[in-house]
């Protein structure tokens, strides 16, 4: 029997019993520890394969150096300050683009959801842009904005804009009508209704978009930096590959993974803080 079925149908007190006894159901003892151990196993196994496979000749150790060499290269890069320089360039660009996208997409999404004419005018062009890959527009951004910071920030903004916009539209558009009725009965002004009812109610949905945007910000930026930049993790990965600095290249790739992870967990933690009221 699949574990999912077993877990979801396991014996547990029903909500009335939980309420009467003022308790909540807990998973069986030890399940948390076991799953933590299994999670570590996966990572350790991956590291071991990476270390051993080049050493025993399963893969060419020139193209895939053992993990220990990559770690050494990462340490050297970190100590020389070069890694920090590229990381900083990437973080500043993606954070700026990401922030700009939020500042544009949330108000616009709210307007689209709230005002029918805005929605009707903007939906077709937005659909068109949404289905145009961000990187396909990179040459256009470079032509118009040059190869400096502006074009890279612009492409990140573009990539982050749509997930946030679409989730804001759906979040604001799908607020429980009963909540809106109760706001109207209280004679709340539209602005106050938005601030006190609609925005908080839409926030979980908006946050889904923000998380997608966070991942996209890193992804698209690295690709953009590979095409035209003089600093940044994407630039460095490309540069290292061109100059056969294979171990530093992997070190930089791992750094982008770590950056992506950090962004995602940071956003998840923020979301959790903001939605402590949920079960």
């Amino acid at each position: 029997m699949p574990d999912l079925l077993l877990e979801r149908t396991a014996a547990r007190p029903n909500p009335r019993q939980e309420e009467a006894a003022e308790v909540t159901a807990a998973p069986r003892l030890g399940t948390g520890l076991a799953s933590l151990a299994r999670g570590l196993t996966g990572i350790v196994l991956l590291a071991a394969i990476w270390e051993i496979a080049p050493r025993v000749g399963l893969v060419n150790d020139y193209f895939v150096p053992p993990l220990s060499q990559v770690a050494q290269a990462w340490w050297d890069l970190a100590r020389s300050g070069e890694l920090l320089r590229h990381l900083e360039a990437s973080v500043v660009r993606s954070a700026t683009g990401f922030g700009l996208a939020l500042a544009l997409a949330i108000p616009l999404g709210a307007a689209v959801a709230w005002y029918r004419p805005v929605r009707e005018v903007l939906t077709p062009p937005l659909e068109l842009f949404r289905n145009t890959a961000a990187l396909a527009l990179l040459p256009v951004f470079v032509l118009i904005l040059g190869i400096g910071e502006t074009s890279k920030i612009a492409i990140v903004t573009y990539a982050c804009f749509f997930p946030v916009l679409l989730n804001t539209i759906s979040g604001v558009g799908n607020v429980d009508p009963q909540l809106l009725r109760s706001a109207r009965v209280l004679g709340l002004s539209p602005v106050a209704t938005f601030r006190k009812v609609v925005f908080p109610a839409a926030l979980p949905t908006i946050f889904t978009g923000i998380r997608i945007a966070g991942a996209a910000a890193v992804l698209v930026l690295i690709a953009a930096e590979m095409i035209g930049a003089t600093a940044g993790l994407g630039y460095f990965i490309n540069y290292a590959q061109n100059n056969f600095l294979i171990a530093p290249m992997y070190a930089a790739i791992l750094t982008t993974s770590a950056l992506g992870l950090a962004v995602n967990y940071g956003l998840v933690a923020l979301e959790r803080r903001l939605s402590r009221w949920r079960a």
């Binding site: 009963q178 909540l179 009725r181 009965v185 908080p200 109610a201």
Partner: peptide, 13 residues
């Protein structure tokens, strides 16, 4: 005028 709805309509947050 106050209104009490069947579905409570409390703000969950």
């Amino acid at each position: 005028r106050g209104f009490v709805f069947q579905q409570y309509t409390l703000l969950p947050w």
